[in-house]
Amino acid sequence: MSYQITMENKVAVVTGAAQGIGAAIASKYAEAGAQVVILDVCPKSCAEELLQKLSKYGKKAAYYLCDVSDSTAVAAVFAEVAHRYGRVDVLVNNAGVVADWDKSYAINAKGTYYCSEAAKPYLEKAEGTIIILTSASVFSGGTGIPQYVTTKAGSYALTLFLAREYAKAGIRVNGIAPAVIMSKMLVERFGSEEAAREHYKTVMPLGRMGEPEDIANIALFLACELSEYLCGEVLIADGGRMHIG
């Protein structure tokens, strides 16, 4: 009999999930049976294709327009989600930006904290888990964007801080630190997906760049019972570049 990961009867909130890594995580959770709730600043129309895809897994995903840097709005949304579904089991703090210093700090660091604090009372009841998306650039200093590296370092530090604080409430907090993942930004930088993939063939020890689904697989692991003894761990997902590259 094969082992199957299931998120049936779980409610998972994923921030910044209209596209990219967040959308891949939302899809993976929906496929595993979770009730998915997406928070994003994009109009709902931007995610219609994704929402239709998620509905094919059996549950209609919810979509809330929410700026995670607005603590009042965040608290209201989590209260609404808890009222609507009766629980919150998983929070994925995925929302992030490449912007100026103030906006980067507001979203990448403060937004992560606001969402975690707003979700805490509901996660405590469910003995739930929080997953924070930080960045491998925190360890390497790469990307060439100081405000991004600095504020992602803030989300990394928050992972450790919240893991220590929330463990007392039975909430596990872990993180994922991706490196180069296929995105619209990379396509624009290299001119095409093919060019980006070709470039990283010789850069990454595994011979390829990462895909959003690679991160989604790790997020599924961190949300399920297989990782229930992990707390305060940040998994570096970079195809081996940091350790053996």
Rank of each mutant, 00 (worst) to 15 (best):
I107Y: 07
K120W: 02
V98T: 09
S116R: 00
V90G: 00
D89H: 10
H83Y: 12
D102I: 10
G111Q: 07
H83N: 15
D89L: 11
E117K: 10
V88Q: 08
G86E: 08
D100F: 09
C115N: 08
E124M: 13
A106R: 08
A76Y: 05
Y105L: 15
K110I: 11
I107N: 04
N94L: 04
V81I: 14
I131D: 05
A82D: 03
K120P: 01
E80W: 02
G96K: 03
A99Q: 13
I132R: 00
Y113P: 06
V81L: 01
N108R: 00
A99H: 14
D89F: 09
Y105S: 12
D102P: 03
E127A: 08
G111S: 06
V77T: 12
F78H: 08
A95S: 06
A95W: 04
Y114Q: 12
I132D: 01
Y105R: 14
E124Q: 15
K125G: 08
G86D: 09
K120R: 13
Y113H: 13
D89T: 11
G111N: 04
N108K: 01
I131M: 07
A119W: 00
E124A: 15
A126C: 13
I132W: 00
S116N: 00
T112A: 06
V90I: 15
L91F: 03
D100K: 09
Y105C: 12
K125Y: 04
D100A: 14
A75R: 01
Y122I: 00
R84C: 11
I131E: 05
Y113S: 13
E117R: 06
P121R: 05
V77F: 06
T112E: 00
A99E: 15
R87D: 01
S104M: 13
D100R: 13
E80L: 08
V97P: 12
I131T: 05
A106S: 13
D89I: 10
A118I: 07
E127F: 02
E80S: 13
E117W: 01
L123M: 11
G111L: 09
E117F: 06
A79F: 10
A109C: 13
R84N: 13
A76F: 05
K110E: 12
A76C: 11
V77H: 02
I132E: 03
N93F: 06
E124T: 14
V98G: 01
Y113Q: 12
G128W: 02
G96C: 10
K110G: 08
K120F: 06
G96A: 14
A106W: 02
Y113F: 15
V92Y: 03
D89K: 07
L123R: 03
N94W: 04
V98C: 05
G111C: 07
I131Q: 05
I130K: 00
V88L: 14
S104W: 09
L123S: 04
Y122P: 03
V92D: 06
I130D: 01
V81S: 02
V97E: 12
I107P: 02
K103H: 13
Y122M: 09
L91T: 02
T129E: 05
F78M: 11
G96H: 07
V90C: 09
N93H: 07
T112W: 01
E117C: 03
D100Y: 10
Y85K: 03
Y85W: 10
A106K: 06
A82M: 01
E80H: 07
L91Y: 04
A76W: 01
G128A: 07
V90Y: 02
E80R: 10
V88M: 09
V88R: 09
E127M: 07
A75T: 10
R87W: 00
V97K: 12
N94D: 09
